[in-house]
């Protein structure tokens, strides 16, 4: 008799996972890269397109962060610190999720998909291969949109910024999001009790990949040949 009861509990868990519902609604649409058709293809053009796209994505992602339950209650300084630490992880996770349906290609935007050859031309082969390693991990797991939105919020809350003023408030935010992930997995994947843990265990590779990306774009910035918008520059400098 325990089984049907468990099932009822399971269904109510799904219905009650308000955090997931809020995050699904808050999830921004993809934006277009719109590479300039009048400029001939080159590494500079590819990087200019990506930096412009990243700048616009960042504006959208800051708007998204404000919808995470509990995030707006943090002090402005702590909101800034979390975003300054996690912004690249958030950008990369969105590219990863968009790329799950393709083989060895990264969907930076609906109109900007990079294959191996394009990655090589842009000098991004190593970086893109690391991002593809993440894509592969999530493909194997069959990452769902609900899990993706939770994981992205967890990456933000768990960004290990050294500048946090109210660490207890940030811990509470982490607990809420972690709890939502556990509840979701208990309800949706009772056959795999370790699924939440498996998802959390992808975060070190995300952190490592983001650090590599920031380092790469910092050296591109120093090189000075690729124009970059202010928000992107501001966040690169925060690292």
């Amino acid at each position: 008799n325990a089984l049907p009861q468990k099932k009822i509990l399971t269904v109510s868990h799904v219905l009650e996972n308000k955090v997931v519902s809020v995050l699904l609604v808050a999830e921004p649409e993809g934006i277009f890269a719109m590479p300039d058709p009048t400029v001939p293809e080159s590494d500079i053009k590819a990087l200019t397109t990506l930096c412009d796209l990243a700048d616009r994505e960042l504006v959208v992602n800051i708007g998204w962060a404000k919808h995470i339950p509990g995030f707006p209650s943090l002090s402005l300084a702590d909101q800034m610190s979390l975003l300054q630490s996690a912004w690249m992880e958030i950008l990369i996770l969105r590219v990863v999720f968009r790329s799950l349906g393709l083989e060895d290609k990264l969907v930076y935007a609906e109109d900007y998909v990079m294959d191996e050859e394009q990655s090589r031309l842009a000098g991004l082969l190593d970086l893109n291969n690391t991002i593809l390693q993440l894509v592969k991990k999530f493909k194997v797991m069959g990452l769902e949109k609900e899990e993706f939105v939770l994981l992205k919020a967890i990456a933000l809350a768990n960004s290990d910024s050294m500048q946090i003023e109210d660490t207890e408030a940030v811990q509470r935010l982490q607990d809420v999001l972690h709890g939502a992930l556990q509840d979701y997995e208990t309800a949706r994947h009772p056959e795999d009790p370790r699924r939440a843990g498996k998802l959390i265990m992808t975060l070190p590779l995300l952190r490592q990949t983001a650090a590599r990306a920031v380092q790469h774009f910092c050296s591109i910035k120093q090189d000075g040949r690729v124009p970059m918008h202010k928000l992107f520059l501001e966040l690169l400098e925060a690292k």
Binding site: V59, I62, M80, Q84, L231, E234
Partner: peptide
């Protein structure tokens, strides 16, 4: 904080990102 003016503004601003 002065160094991170745009992030600060975007977080304080209540308009949606599309309006900026």
């Amino acid at each position: 904080k002065e160094k991170h003016k745009i992030l600060h503004q975007l977080l304080q601003n209540n308009t949606s990102p599309g309006d900026l």
